[in-house]
Design a protein around this nucleic acid. Structure first.
Length: 415
RNA sequence: GGAGGGUUAGCCUAAUUGGUAAGGCACCGGAUUUGAAAUCCGGCGGGCUCUGCCCUUGGGGGUUCGAGUCCCUCACCCUCCGCCA
């Protein structure tokens, strides 16, 4: 959530940010107008409440002295009604302002390239892994069928399209990958959290999925939502807390399934297991101070890259442009792995600094030594990493023409 | 699902028939000290346009001039019963 007070002097900063993201900048005017009226109302209410408190204290005093309180009581009754009506107006306005603010995306960092959509993203580095072991790499679904380890037909019978079912070697390889990720990340100081997979609505407001992306979420009859990523529970881990500066940065990771409705992606990635309603991911998450968050972003990117390097896979790093940036992010790197069978770059990690955007929504703060006022932390998230997309790259890269799959060395202990 | 008990600032604990949240511990800063302990002073929920004011007793609502206190409702925790991997 953005803070209106930062734009009081220069509303164009906000308008430009909205423009670069492809949003209507007009909403900025509405917000500043509401912000101004809100402050007026608060001031007015403060004064009225002060009057009420001061005069109310006189009542027991007058009674003790045996004096008549009737006149004062009727005055106070009127005052109470005035206060009530201002309170009603304030409440309505706060609701309206919050509603508007909840729908404003984060302000892009100055280093983010300006662009309208994903075509203007920038590839900033490329890592060359092992050459495909097959002369003529084939798509993972063909490998899966040949070896009888992926059964999309049964998955469709059980759950419909965009679900997968792994058998035997495939099931083991996916599990090995996830265990490998967890072990490597733990070495880098991320503490493992196993969170609930069902969360309350307000938790999704905190991380930024709601109110704008309701269509992407599965909701249960008890008004709990299936998490689309472990970022959701992790971002809310220290909700309403004031952390110690000495404890920062806090580094967490979670392995969870991720559930996404993928509404509006009909006809996209229909073959194979590239786009799914359920997949698995190890998520990395950090709570940092404002001045270290961009260094921590680079470190998190290196941590995620390290996993792909150890698997010896070809990948590149993409700096997202303003038009392709996610709602909560101020800056994002995508890691895309090369899948030689489908001949495509597949996004396996999206690493973002949300600055204080989520912290404002979740009220996650820290106190600096010797300072009274608590400050908002910065939060960062990134996959480290997601299956089965990494699985796809491994299958298509390590499949040999003799019909066997070589297992990367680092995975052997997990098989 | 049913019955009962509970929730006051990081923790612990008060608050006459309803009168405007009192203390303790811990922690932080300062004084004192060769240093430490002890002691003393100050701070120790949040916000603001900050000499001051407003809000804050699990959340929301109601009664009232005024609610920690009375009423309704929800959440969470504990105990027991039932069901259950």
């Amino acid at each position: 959530m953005i803070a209106p007070k930062y734009f009081r002097d220069d509303i164009d900063v906000l308008k430009n940010a909205l423009l670069h993201r492809g949003e209507d900048p007009k909403i900025a005017d509405d917000i500043m107008r509401m912000d101004m009226r809100l402050r007026e109302l608060k001031k007015k209410l403060d004064d009225l409440r002060k009057q009420r408190n001061e005069k109310g204290k006189l009542i027991p005093k007058l009674k003790k002295e045996g004096k008549d309180t009737e006149e004062l009581l009727s005055e106070l009754k009127e005052l109470a009604e005035t206060i009530k009506s201002y309170e009603n107006e304030l409440e309505t306005l706060e609701e309206k302002l919050k509603n508007a603010l909840y729908r404003i995306p984060n302000i892009p960092h100055e280093s983010v390239p300006i662009g309208k959509d994903e075509t203007e993203n920038r590839v900033i580095s490329e890592y060359k892994g092992i050459e495909p072991l097959s002369q003529n790499p084939i798509p993972h679904w063909e490998i899966g069928e040949k070896l009888d380890i992926i059964d999309l037909k049964v998955a469709a019978n059980l759950s419909g399209s965009r679900f997968y079912l792994f058998k035997n070697f495939a099931a083991k390889l996916e599990r090995a990958l996830l265990n490998f990720f967890l072990k490597e990340n733990e070495k880098k100081g991320y503490m493992e959290i196993l969170p609930p997979y069902l969360v309350k609505e307000e938790i999704l407001y905190g991380s930024g999925q709601l109110p704008k992306f309701r269509d992407e979420l599965y909701k249960t009859q008890d008004d709990l939502y299936l998490i689309p990523t472990a970022e959701v529970p992790l971002a809310n881990l220290h909700r309403n807390e004031i952390l110690n500066e000495d404890d920062l940065p806090l580094k967490y990771m979670s392995f969870t399934p991720c559930f996404r409705r993928e509404a509006g992606s009909y006809g996209k990635d229909v073959r194979g297991i590239i786009r799914l309603h359920q997949f698995h991911k190890v998520e990395l998450f950090k709570f940092t101070t404002p001045e270290t968050s961009y260094d921590e972003l680079e470190k998190m990117r290196e941590d995620a890259e390290d996993l792909l390097k150890k698997l010896n896979l070809t990948y590149h790093v993409v700096a997202l442009c303003t038009g392709d940036l996610g709602f909560s992010a101020a800056k994002t790197y995508d890691l895309e792995v090369w899948a030689p069978g489908v001949k495509r770059w597949l996004e396996v990690s999206s690493i973002s600094n949300t600055e204080d955007f989520q912290a404002r929504r979740t009220m996650t703060r820290f106190r600096r030594k010797g300072q009274k006022r608590p400050l908002y932390v910065h939060t960062l998230n990134g996959s480290g990493l997601a299956t089965p997309r990494v699985f796809i790259a491994i299958l298509e890269t390590y499949y040999k023409d003799d019909g066997t799959i070589e297992i990367p060395d680092v995975l052997k202990e997990f098989m």
